[in-house]
């Protein structure tokens, strides 16, 4: 034989998926939501995304190279995904230095402290987001006016999110029927013409991204569907019991960060369960906690907290919820 051949154990062929491809797939799936955001919020959306992605990638590179002293792996795109997701969770008029702090916390505390990609128990982007939310509540809860503030960045006129309007209103005793006049119509809500964080406004664009990811098998449908079902059921029951003081389930589904959270944040690989059964438990938990925070809690929106809380249950779920072992329960039919 005149040249070497490879001898290795089977299998001898491999699937096309690589971590890099999956991560870029997530970024492609976020494109529609990003474009909608650029349409409604203009330059703010561009600036926030750029700063967030650049700082996340930079911090990951620096930490890997100088603190962990390993070969930087920023090219796998996971830091970029964290960056885009962090940006999606921020209002587009937030000062640049807050984004940089958020990126540092997301990558440094949320991801690298635990050993990097795959070892982090909490979704890094959400760690960054919640950190900013508790640290800079004022900046994190003033959302720019869509369309009219396209050309402004931090000086944009602001307003409250529909969920915020409802929460405030109900706390003040204003009935739902009157509050409904203060929020955009459901079509606007669905398309994304409302106050909100950059990436959460358009349920339509996010769902399109979600369908793309499911079709490309980047994620499975279990987590988003279980979250949607739980939220719909829970808010539906509350609404049926007392429609005067509760928003209807459709409103809950298409407002706030629910779709963004359910499709992009809760499905984060490292921080979600491994089995379909586990995913159902996880999704249901997120749904219940989200609605509980929205309806009974202090904050108008709760999906970030809900995901982080359920993230902490994932190791437990993975330990006790096992896949259906072949031949374990013999069901002979």
């Amino acid at each position: 034989m005149d040249k070497l051949i490879t001898v290795s154990p089977s299998p001898h062929v491999y699937g096309d998926d690589t971590v890099k491809k999956l991560m870029y797939g997530v970024i492609y799936a976020l494109l529609p939501a990003f474009l909608v955001s650029v349409y409604f919020f203009g330059i703010g959306a561009l600036i926030v995304t750029a700063i967030s992605v650049v700082s996340c990638v930079m911090f990951e590179y620096l930490i890997q190279k100088y603190m962990m002293k390993t070969e930087p792996s920023v090219s796998d795109g996971s830091a970029a995904v964290t960056g885009v997701l962090l940006a999606m969770n921020l209002p587009t008029n937030i000062p640049w230095w807050i984004i940089v702090i958020g990126a540092l916390v997301a990558i440094g505390v949320g991801k690298m402290s635990f050993g990097g990609l795959g070892n982090n128990p909490f979704n890094p982007a959400l760690v960054g987001r919640v950190f900013l939310f508790i640290s800079f509540p004022v900046q994190m809860t003033s959302w720019p006016e869509p369309i009219v503030s396209r050309l402004q960045y931090t000086d944009a006129a602001t307003g409250a999110t529909p969920l915020g309007v409802i929460k405030e209103g109900l706390a003040a005793g204003v009935p739902m029927s009157r509050l409904a006049e203060q929020i955009p119509g459901y079509l606007d809500l669905f398309i994304g013409h409302l106050h909100g964080s950059m990436g959460e406004i358009s349920a339509l664009a996010l769902l399109a991204g979600g369908i793309y990811m499911i079709a490309r098998k980047i994620i499975t449908w279990h987590i988003p569907v279980s979250i949607f079902c739980t939220v719909f059921l829970f808010t539906g029951i509350l609404w049926l019991i007392n429609p005067y003081d509760n928003a209807d389930p459709v409103f809950h589904l298409i407002t706030g960060g629910l779709v963004l959270g359910a499709v992009f944040m809760a499905t984060d690989y490292a921080t979600s369960p491994m089995t379909p059964k586990g995913m159902w438990i996880y999704g249901t938990g997120i749904g219940v906690i989200t609605v509980a925070i929205r309806v009974y809690g202090a904050y108008p929106e709760g999906i970030s907290f809900a995901i982080l809380i359920m993230n902490s249950f994932v190791p437990l779920i993975n330990k006790y919820v096992k896949p259906n072992r072949f031949g374990e329960e013999v069901k002979n039919g």
């Binding site: 505390v109 640290s135 509540p137 004022v138």
Partner: peptide, 15 residues
């Protein structure tokens, strides 16, 4: 202006 509030709150103490 305000700093990062979280450090005044309990979670910040732990961090």
């Amino acid at each position: 202006g305000d700093g990062m509030l979280v450090f005044i709150l309990a979670p910040g103490a732990f961090i």
